[in-house]
């Protein structure tokens, strides 16, 4: 009897091993990567619209971006709804690694040159030991190179400098919706009257909604938390920045089309120097076009 029991155990066991080996697919599934898989395309581009997103230019890739904003639409047909005017920002962003990006750019507003640094500290991922958010830092230093308003005065180079620092926290909630919160600190070495703060805090809110596989709707706003009643250096009233736009992906390129009340495209100008408002049609049509160049020799040299 005992032998019979042993035998039946053996039969069961052997059929079990047979089952395990039969299922080759199951074996491969078990052998698959156990690492969490990164979440991709929280936003379509490194810029939500004008402000930064948590996306980066990939390692050893150069992203050349032309940002362009026309004039205010409330100029009416006389200015062809602002198209007579134009502001431009040319930006070169280079991915040192997938998580560190360096940038050089020049903006026509204030004839400003700037250098920037973007670092991704956490990347959202799924699977085992997943990460719920992407978190990154972005900062720049801008140098205004306009001729001095009053050349007879004692002017200092440091007066030309402005600084921008922000933490970007984003989450792709599902295939369709991504949101980003961006605590932001703007510092201008030269502001208006002495009583003004050089420093201004703002809280950026941005989002992206997928409309189709090629098109996304984006929004971004940077409400100022401090120094809201300060005027610009030339005495203009300032407003909170808001932009609405679309990403249109055309196979390797992303074309961004937007409406915004911001004139400057350098991030600190966007937050602190927005002089017109949506309420009375002080909005501008604009677009960003980008072209990415790969310097990834390793991938290039791989023969097919």
């Amino acid at each position: 009897m005992r032998n019979l029991l042993l035998a039946s155990i053996l039969v069961v066991f052997s059929s079990l091993t047979a089952f395990a080996q039969d299922d080759l697919m199951g074996m491969l599934q078990d052998a698959g990567p156990q690492k969490p898989t990164p979440v991709f395309a929280t936003f379509k581009a490194p810029r939500v619209i004008t402000g930064q997103s948590v996306e980066h230019t990939a390692a050893r890739h150069l992203n050349f971006v032309i940002l362009h904003r026309f004039g205010e639409m409330n100029g009416g047909a006389y200015t062809l709804f602002g198209i007579d005017q134009a502001n431009i920002r040319l930006a070169f962003d280079y991915g040192l690694t997938d998580r560190i990006q360096l940038g050089l750019a020049r903006s026509s507003v204030g004839k400003t040159y700037d250098g920037s640094l973007k670092v991704k500290l956490l990347a959202q991922s799924k699977g085992k030991k997943s990460m719920p958010i992407t978190l990154g830092y972005y900062g720049n230093v801008g140098v205004n190179t306009e001729t001095w308003a009053n050349p007879n005065r004692n002017n200092y180079f440091t007066s030309r400098l402005s600084f921008f620092n922000q933490i970007n926290i984003a989450r792709k909630f599902n295939d369709w919706v991504s949101l980003q919160v961006s605590p932001t600190l703007v510092h201008y070495n030269l502001v208006g009257p002495k009583s003004y703060d050089n420093m201004m805090f703002a809280l950026g809110l941005s989002g992206s909604i997928k409309l189709s596989r090629s098109v996304r709707f984006n929004f971004e706003t940077y409400p100022r938390l401090t120094a809201q009643d300060q005027l610009s250096r030339t005495g203009d009233k300032l407003y909170n920045y808001l932009a609405l736009g679309f990403d249109i992906e055309t196979g390797g390129h992303v074309f961004q089309l937007m409406l915004s009340n911001g004139n400057g495209m350098l991030e600190q100008q966007m937050v602190r120097e927005t002089r017109t408002q949506w309420a009375d049609g002080g909005i501008r049509l604009g677009f960003n076009v980008s072209r990415t160049f790969s310097f990834d020799k390793k991938e290039k040299s791989k023969k097919w």
């Binding site: 898989t37 395309a41 992906e249 990834d296």
Partner: peptide
């Protein structure tokens, strides 16, 4: 049996890689 993880495809152009997956 063959199993391929689509995100493991490496492209020369990383933007293309993202579009391939997305």
């Amino acid at each position: 049996a063959v199993v391929i993880y689509n995100t493991g495809f490496e492209f020369e152009n990383k933007l293309m890689q993202e579009h391939f997956n997305e």
